[in-house]
Write a protein that binds this DNA or RNA. Structure first.
Length: 515
RNA sequence: UGCGGGGUAGAGCAGUCUGGUAGCUCGCCGGGCUCAUAACCCGGAGGUCCUAGGUUCAAAUCCUAGCCCCGCUACCA
C-alpha cells in the first residue's frame, strides 16, 4: 500500500551571510509541518537548499579569496550545521551549483524555448549590482539605488526573455478557481491585485556573467539567478533525470516561503510551469517575518541576531517553541530577549518541565517509579476529555487549508492540557491519598497523569522534537512512529517502570539579554 | 502616491466576520498546598476597548470622518 505523499519545500537561501533568526523561522515552521505530516501517516519529502548563483555570492567569495564553488561548499557546511542543530528534518539539501541542478535548469530553459515562451530581445536600464536588478528612472533616489545608496550602471544587452505577459489571464483564472493555491488569504489578495495591474515580459538571462548556469547553445549567457533558483523545486525530485521519481513527487504539496517573495512563487513560478506544461504546486504559503524589537532584521542592514546566539545560550527547542508560540505562521512575530526568557521560564520550565518533574517525583516516592491502574472516579473524565479535545485542536490548527498554519493555537491547546493536568494533580491531591492509605485511588491518579504527559510529549513532537524524545526517555516508553499508534487514552502498561527525573528546562535566573 | 496590517488593564495579545454582562498570558497583591525546577493551585486589584459623529433597545464589534504607529511598493525569509 503506497502512502500519501507530501512534498514540502522551503525557499533556498542566498549564501552571502549565515542564517539569521528570520531564516531559521522559516525552516522551523516548515519542519514543524513536515514532522506533523510524517507523524500523521504521510510519506514526506522535505526539501531545502542554498541559492548560489548571485553576484553577492561571487563578491563574498572573492573577498575571502576563494573560488565561488569552494566558498559555496563551505557555506553549505555552515548552513546545514545550524539546521541540524535546530533539528530541521530535511530529506534533501540542494545547492544550485550542483550538476543535477544545472541539467534540470537547462532542460526547463530548452522546453520553454521550444514552446516559444522564451525569446531573445534587447534589455537596457540602470543596473544595481548589489540588488542584481535593473531599475527604472523613477525607482532611483537621487540617481542612486534605493537599497544600497550606490550608483547603478547603465547596461544594455541582448537577453533572453520569458513571455510572462501571456500568463496574466490564465494565472488570474487559476488563482480565482483555486483558493488554496496562495495562503494565507492576505497574500492571495496581494497577488490578485498585482496581476490586475498587468504583467510584463521579463529578462531571464545575463550576458557575460561567469558564475551561473550557461544558457544551452549560447554559453555567453547565464541564466538569471532567480530563474534558476525557482527550478530547484523540480531538480530536487528528479526533473529531467529520474522520470519515475519526478512523477511520484511532483507537484509539490506546499512551498513555504517568506511573504516578500510571493511575487516569484505565485506569479512567475506558476507561469513558468504553465509554459512547460507541468502541474502547479498545490499551495504556496507565505509566512510572516520575525522582527527584532520591532525593527526589521535584514542581511543588508546588518542588525542580525543569529539562531546560534539562542541555541548556544539556551536550547534549540526553546527557540523553536518561542518562535512558533508567539503568532500564527502567516502573521509577523517578534523576538526580544526579555520576552524569550519570560516564555522560557513560564511555559517551558514552570509548566511543561515541572509537570513532568513533579509527577515523576510522586511516582518514585509513592510507588518506587512503578505505576499501574487503580480505582477510577468520575472526576477523571475532565482530564480525559481535555486530552481528546487537544488532539482535535492540534489537528485543526495544523490544517493550513483552513487558511493559516496556527502553530500558536496548537501549542496553546497543548498547554491547556498541561494546565489541566496540573489542576487535576492539585484537586486529586495524591499526597493526601497517600496519607489516607487510598492506594488504589492514588494509583489511578498517577496512571491518568502519566497518560496525559505521554500525550503531551507526543503532541509537542512537531514543535520540539528533542524535548519530546527526552520526555519519552524519562517515561521509559518507546516513541511512537505515528500519532495513531498512541493517540488513545489509557495505553500505559501495568507495573510500568518509569525512568529517572531530570529537569527539561532549568529555569533562567539571571538576565543575560544582549539584544 | 498606492496597497496592506494595527491602535483593547503596567507589558504582550485574543475578541471585531456572525452587535448582547470585556477575556488570555506575564507582572502585581492576598490565600492554599508540599509531589516539583522559589514550582503548582485558588482568589483579587487594575480598562475613557485611538478620537468625533451616526445606526440600534443594545457597539470594542456595523457605518462615516479624522488622528497616530508599522510593513510592502519588482527580487533581504
Amino acid at each position: 500500500m503506497s502512502q500519501k505523499k507530501f512534498y514540502i519545500t522551503t525557499a533556498i537561501d542566498y549564501v552571502n551571510s549565515i542564517p539569521h533568526l528570520g531564516t531559521a523561522y522559516e525552516k522551523i515552521g516548515a519542519d514543524a509541518l513536515a514532522r506533523f505530516m510524517r507523524m500523521d501517516g504521510y510519506q514526506v519529502h522535505f526539501q531545502m537548499g542554498n541559492d548560489e548563483h548571485s553576484v553577492n555570492v561571487l563578491k563574498a567569495a572573492k573577498e575571502k579569496g576563494l573560488e565561488p564553488k569552494v566558498y559555496c561548499d563551505e557555506m553549505r557546511g555552515k548552513f546545514t550545521e545550524i539546521w541540524q542543530k535546530l533539528f530541521i528534518s530535511y530529506d534533501d539539501f540542494i545547492q544550485t551549483s550542483e550538476p543535477r541542478h544545472h541539467k534540470a535548469s537547462q532542460k526547463l530553459f530548452e522546453v520553454l524555448k521550444e514552446s516559444g515562451d522564451v525569446f531573445k530581445g534587447d534589455y537596457e536600464g540602470w543596473y544595481c549590482e548589489s540588488c542584481e536588478a535593473f531599475y527604472t528612472e523613477k525607482d532611483l533616489v537621487n540617481g542612486e539605488c534605493p537599497h544600497h545608496k550606490s550608483k547603478p550602471k547603465w547596461l544594455k544587452e541582448k537577453n533572453y526573455f520569458f513571455k510572462l505577459s501571456k500568463y496574466q489571464q490564465p494565472l488570474l483564472e487559476y488563482i480565482q478557481q483555486h483558493p488554496e493555491f496562495i495562503l494565507p488569504e492576505i497574500r492571495r489578495n496581494e497577488v490578485l491585485g498585482l496581476l490586475k495591474q498587468g504583467l510584463e515580459d521579463i529578462s531571464i538571462s545575463r550576458a557575460g556573467f561567469p558564475w551561473g548556469i550557461p544558457v544551452p547553445n549560447d554559453p555567453e549567457h547565464a541564466l538569471y539567478v532567480w530563474f534558476d533558483a525557482l527550478i530547484n523545486y523540480l531538480t530536487a525530485v528528479g526533473y529531467g533525470a529520474d522520470e519515475k521519481k519526478f512523477q511520484e513527487w511532483w507537484p509539490a504539496t506546499i512551498h513555504i516561503i517568506g511573504k516578500d517573495i510571493t511575487r516569484f512563487h505565485c506569479v512567475i513560478w506558476p507561469a513558468m510551469l504553465m509554459a512547460a506544461n507541468l502541474p502547479l504546486p498545490k499551495t504556496v504559503f507565505g509566512h510572516g517575518f520575525v522582527y527584532l524589537r520591532g525593527e526589521k532584521m535584514s542581511k543588508t542592514l546588518g542588525n542580525v541576531v543569529t539562531p546560534l546566539d539562542v541555541i548556544n545560550s539556551y536550547s534549540p527547542d526553546s527557540l523553536r517553541y518561542y518562535l512558533l508560540r508567539t503568532s500564527s505562521f502567516g502573521a509577523d512575530g517578534n523576538f526580544t530577549w526579555e520576552d524569550f526568557i519570560k516564555r522560557y521560564n513560564a511555559d517551558l520550565a514552570n509548566d511543561l518541565g515541572n509537570v513532568l518533574n513533579r509527577s515523576l517525583g510522586m511516582a518514585k516516592k509513592y510507588f518506587e517509579g512503578k505505576i499501574s491502574k487503580g480505582e477510577e472516579k468520575p472526576e477523571d473524565k475532565l482530564l480525559i476529555e481535555k486530552a481528546k479535545e487537544t488532539a482535535a485542536k492540534v489537528r485543526k490548527a495544523m490544517n493550513y487549508l483552513n487558511g493559516d498554519l496556527d502553530y500558536h493555537l496548537a501549542l496553546e491547546a497543548i498547554w491547556d492540557l498541561i494546565g489541566t493536568t496540573d489542576k487535576y494533580i492539585d484537586s486529586s491531591a495524591p499526597w493526601t491519598l497517600k496519607k489516607n492509605n487510598q492506594e488504589e485511588r492514588l494509583k489511578q491518579v498517577l496512571h491518568n497523569v502519566f497518560n496525559s504527559i505521554r500525550l503531551i510529549g507526543m503532541w509537542i513532537f512537531p514543535f520540539m522534537p528533542d524535548t519530546s524524545k527526552k520526555i519519552y526517555q524519562q517515561l521509559q516508553i518507546p516513541f511512537p512512529n505515528h500519532f495513531s499508534e498512541s493517540e488513545n487514552w489509557d495505553i500505559m502498561p501495568d507495573e510500568h517502570p518509569l525512568g529517572e527525573a531530570s529537569p527539561l528546562f532549568p529555569r533562567i535566573e539571571m538576565n543575560p539579554g544582549n539584544s
